[in-house]
C-alpha cells in the first residue's frame, strides 16, 4: 500500500460486493430457435456477481488508475463509489459526492453544445452569471468552438466526451471519476485533460482513472489498482502493477 495513515482518507471501500439480478433470455440463439416468436422465449433471472469483496482506501491527492480486462468489474466499482449502483454487501464512505465522467450519450442531445454548457453548469450549482463568466474557458478547453451552436446529436463521440469533460471539471471536484472518457479524445485533448486531472489532484482532489491506456495511467497516476473477475488482484505503485498486469495478459 502506498497509503500512509496521516493523510486524510477521502474514499473508503470496505469489503464491497455487488450482485446484479438481470432478466436474461434462457436459450441460446441457435438456428433452431431464432424463428421462435419473442413471446415464447423463457426469461430467467440470472445473478451476476460483479464485485466480490473489494477493499481499499483512497487519500487526498491520490490519483488512482484502475486497470483490468473487459468485464472485470472496474466500471461497477466506480458506479458503486458514486452511489449509482447499490452494494449488496459491505460499505463505501466518501468525503463528498463523487462525480463520474464516462463515455456515452450527450447530456441533452437535441440542444446545442452551448446550451449544454449552460445547463451543465447550472446543474452543478453555478449561478447564471458565474457560468457566463466560465463559458469561454469551457468551450476553449473542449476545443469545439466551431461546432458549439450545433445540436449535440451531430457531435462525434470524441467531441461529446470533450465537452462533457470540460463541463464536469469546471467545478473543483474533491472526487472525480473518469471512466474511459479520455480514450475517445485525440492526442492534444488527452494531454490537456491529463494536465487538468493533475491540477485537480494538486488541489487536494482525488481522481480515479479507468483506462486501458497504460501510458495515460503512467502519466497521471501515483497508484494503480488492478481488478480481475471482481476481485482486487493488486494495489500499489503504477510501474509494478502495470508490469504484473501486462505480464499476465
Amino acid at each position: 500500500m502506498v497509503a500512509s495513515s496521516d493523510r486524510r482518507p477521502v474514499v473508503v471501500v470496505d469489503n464491497v460486493h455487488v450482485e446484479y439480478k438481470v432478466l436474461a433470455t434462457g436459450k441460446k440463439a441457435t438456428a433452431a430457435n431464432t424463428k421462435q416468436s419473442i413471446f415464447s422465449r423463457r426469461r430467467t433471472m440470472q445473478t451476476v456477481h460483479a464485485l466480490k469483496g473489494v477493499s481499499f482506501t483512497a487519500y487526498e491527492n491520490d490519483s488512482i488508475g484502475i486497470i483490468g480486462s473487459n468485464g472485470s468489474g472496474k466500471s461497477t466499482l466506480m458506479r458503486a463509489i458514486t452511489g449509482l449502483t447499490p452494494v449488496s454487501k459491505g460499505n463505501i464512505w466518501a468525503s463528498s459526492r463523487p462525480s463520474m465522467l464516462g463515455v456515452g450519450a450527450a447530456l441533452i442531445k437535441d440542444l446545442s453544445g452551448s446550451r449544454n454548457v449552460i445547463l451543465g453548469g447550472l446543474a452543478l450549482g453555478f449561478t447564471k452569471a458565474e457560468i457566463e463568466g466560465l463559458y469561454d474557458d469551457i468551450v476553449d478547453f473542449a476545443g469545439i468552438r466551431k461546432f458549439i451552436d450545433m445540436p449535440m446529436r451531430t457531435y462525434s463521440s470524441g467531441m461529446t466526451a470533450r465537452l462533457k469533460f470540460a463541463i464536469a471539471t469546471i467545478r473543483d471536484h474533491e472526487i472525480l471519476i473518469v471512466d474511459e472518457a479520455l480514450a475517445v479524445g485525440d492526442r492534444a485533448f488527452r494531454t490537456r485533460s491529463e494536465n487538468r486531472i493533475r491540477e485537480i489532484r494538486d488541489n487536494a482532489g482525488t481522481v480515479f482513472l479507468v483506462s486501458h491506456s497504460m501510458s495515460s495511467i503512467r502519466d497521471t497516476c501515483n497508484r494503480v489498482i488492478w481488478i480481475e473477475k471482481g476481485e482486487m488482484k493488486m494495489d500499489g505503485d503504477p510501474e509494478e502493477v502495470i508490469a504484473a498486469y501486462e505480464a499476465s495478459s
Partner: peptide, 17 residues
C-alpha cells in the same frame, strides 16, 4: 477493520445516503 465512527469524525459519510 473499518471504524465507522472514526471515518465520520474525519468528514466521511456513507455513499448512497
Amino acid at each position: 477493520p473499518v471504524d465507522a465512527s472514526r471515518l465520520e469524525a474525519q468528514g466521511l459519510s456513507r455513499v448512497g445516503g
